[in-house]
Amino acid sequence: MLEARGLSKSFGRARALDGVSVEIAPGEVVAVTGPSGAGKSTLLHCLAGVLRPESGEVVLDGRRIDTLGEAELTALRRQSFGIVFQFGELVPELSAVENVALPLLFNRHGRGEAMAAAAEWLERLEVADCADQRIGELSGGQRQRVAVARALVTGPRVVFADEPTGALDTLGGEQVMTAMLGAARAGGAAVVLVTHDNRVAAYADREITLRDGAVLAGVNP
């Protein structure tokens, strides 16, 4: 479904990716691991269409996406991908339910419909009681669940998660992972997970290890 072929990307003189090829099947959970500076986040951003690789190609359902125009790529990210960041990166001025409804509103759904769908997702992720609270009033775990709900509310084909439990304690991290993978699997979404943490990587169907911008190994944990 999602495939990267020979991706290379540099930042100045630093080579972040060096001919990386990976393949993600529908509904598959893939963990990308490796030391700091190995190119994990760069790979995730190239796959998600946030960064453009210097060479190589990214293909979604047989269609190259790295050559799409900015407007098409932006629409693709909004409609087919969901992204979860390490610190949630929610809009602090909006309530939890408004944050989750935002992608639907940008996809031109009506306000009532968007709010109802957002409330349903918050319930599914067991944070329904926080719906009307502002982000600053939520705990780290609650924030990440809201971020997961925001990533999944549009029914994406792939969810990209960059260190989704990096800012949480062990228990909070486990709860977020269970909630995220459960919801993603229920919706048939594939998950690409960047992590330093072996316990988090163990949730994946497959692990890809990067070092110095190249794939070191691909294993099934």
Partner: peptide
């Protein structure tokens, strides 16, 4: 900038 950068990464157009 962080909230807006995250929204842009998630597919919100710059013009919005």
């Amino acid at each position: 900038r962080r909230s807006f950068a995250a929204l842009a990464a998630a597919g919100v157009p710059e013009r919005s």
